[in-house]
Amino acid sequence: AQFIESYVCRMCSRGDEDDKLLLCDGCDDNYHIFCLLPPLPEIPKGVWRCPKCVM
């Protein structure tokens, strides 16, 4: 059997509050909206890229 790795935030390495986890459309990394600098108030609509992919 294969275990699917749960999504974890690249900043805090936690997978809780998954309703606040953002998936980068560039590299598929995950980030909590409140772990980003600056934090986001809510999940953005449409395409989102993490700080690494925006640079």
Rank of each mutant, 00 (worst) to 15 (best):
A1V: 05
A1W: 06
A1D: 12
A1C: 03
A1P: 11
Q2S: 14
Q2W: 11
Q2N: 12
Q2F: 03
Q2G: 04
Q2T: 15
Q2Y: 11
Q2D: 14
F3C: 07
F3L: 12
F3M: 14
I4H: 09
I4E: 08
I4Q: 15
I4D: 11
I4K: 11
I4V: 12
I4G: 05
I4R: 05
E5D: 13
E5I: 05
E5N: 15
E5S: 09
E5M: 14
S6T: 14
S6D: 03
S6K: 05
S6F: 08
S6H: 05
S6V: 04
S6C: 04
Y7G: 14
Y7Q: 11
Y7V: 09
Y7P: 10
Y7F: 08
Y7N: 15
V8S: 12
V8W: 06
V8G: 09
V8E: 06
C9W: 00
C9D: 01
C9R: 01
C9Q: 02
C9I: 03
R10M: 11
R10K: 14
R10F: 03
R10A: 08
R10C: 09
R10N: 11
M11K: 15
M11Q: 13
M11R: 13
M11L: 06
M11A: 10
M11P: 02
M11V: 09
M11T: 07
M11H: 05
C12V: 00
C12K: 04
C12G: 02
C12Y: 01
C12I: 00
C12T: 02
C12E: 01
C12Q: 02
S13D: 11
S13N: 07
S13H: 06
S13Q: 07
S13V: 09
G15I: 10
G15T: 13
G15F: 12
G15P: 13
G15H: 04
G15D: 11
D16R: 12
D16A: 11
D16S: 14
D16G: 14
D16M: 14
E17P: 10
E17A: 14
E17M: 09
E17F: 11
E17C: 15
E17V: 15
D18P: 15
D18C: 07
D18M: 14
D18E: 13
D18L: 13
D18W: 13
D18G: 15
D18F: 14
D18N: 10
D18I: 14
D19S: 10
D19A: 13
D19N: 13
D19E: 10
D19L: 08
D19K: 13
D19R: 11
D19G: 13
D19I: 07
K20Y: 11
K20T: 14
K20G: 02
K20W: 05
K20R: 08
K20P: 11
K20I: 03
L21K: 12
L21P: 02
L21V: 05
L21H: 04
L21F: 10
L21M: 07
L22R: 07
L22W: 01
L22C: 11
L22E: 03
L22P: 01
L22N: 04
L23P: 12
L23C: 09
L23S: 14
L23N: 14
L23A: 13
L23M: 15
C24Q: 08
D25N: 05
D25T: 12
D25G: 10
D25V: 12
D25H: 07
D25R: 11
G26N: 09
G26W: 04
G26R: 12
G26M: 07
G26H: 14
G26Q: 09
G26C: 12
G26F: 11
C27V: 02
C27D: 02
C27N: 01
C27F: 00
C27S: 01
C27I: 00
C27Q: 03
D28K: 03
D28T: 03
D28R: 15
D28M: 04
D28C: 04
D28V: 03
D29H: 15
D29E: 12
D29G: 10
D29K: 15
D29L: 09
D29F: 09
D29T: 10
N30P: 10
N30R: 13
N30K: 14
N30V: 14
N30G: 13
N30H: 07
N30D: 01
N30Y: 08
N30F: 10
Y31D: 01
Y31E: 03
Y31R: 02
Y31I: 06
H32E: 00
H32L: 01
H32S: 00
H32Q: 02
H32C: 02
H32G: 00
H32T: 00
I33Q: 14
I33K: 04
I33T: 13
I33R: 04
F34G: 13
F34L: 08
F34K: 15
F34W: 10
F34P: 05
C35E: 01
C35H: 06
C35N: 01
C35M: 00
C35Y: 01
C35A: 01
L36P: 02
L36T: 08
L36Y: 00
L36D: 00
L36H: 12
L37R: 14
L37T: 11
L37N: 15
L37H: 12
L37K: 15
L37A: 12
P38E: 07
P38N: 13
P38Y: 04
P38D: 05
P38A: 11
P38C: 07
P39G: 07
P39L: 03
P39E: 12
P39N: 11
P39M: 05
P39S: 13
P39Y: 03
P39K: 14
P39R: 08
L40S: 04
P41F: 06
P41T: 10
P41N: 08
E42N: 11
E42P: 02
E42M: 04
E42G: 08
E42I: 12
E42A: 11
I43H: 08
I43T: 03
I43V: 08
I43W: 07
I43G: 05
I43Y: 05
I43F: 07
I43R: 12
I43E: 11
K45D: 15
K45L: 07
K45T: 12
K45Q: 05
K45M: 03
G46V: 09
G46M: 06
G46K: 04
G46C: 03
G46R: 10
G46E: 15
G46Q: 10
V47M: 08
V47H: 10
V47L: 04
V47A: 06
V47Q: 15
W48D: 02
W48A: 03
W48I: 08
W48V: 01
W48L: 01
W48C: 00
W48R: 02
W48G: 02
W48P: 04
W48N: 01
W48F: 06
W48Y: 03
R49Q: 14
R49N: 15
R49G: 04
R49V: 06
R49D: 01
R49K: 15
R49F: 04
C50F: 04
C50D: 01
C50V: 00
P51W: 07
P51N: 11
P51H: 12
P51Q: 08
P51M: 10
K52W: 04
K52V: 09
K52I: 12
K52D: 14
K52F: 08
K52P: 13
K52H: 07
K52C: 05
C53W: 00
C53P: 02
C53T: 00
C53L: 00
C53R: 00
V54S: 06
V54P: 04
M55I: 05
M55T: 07
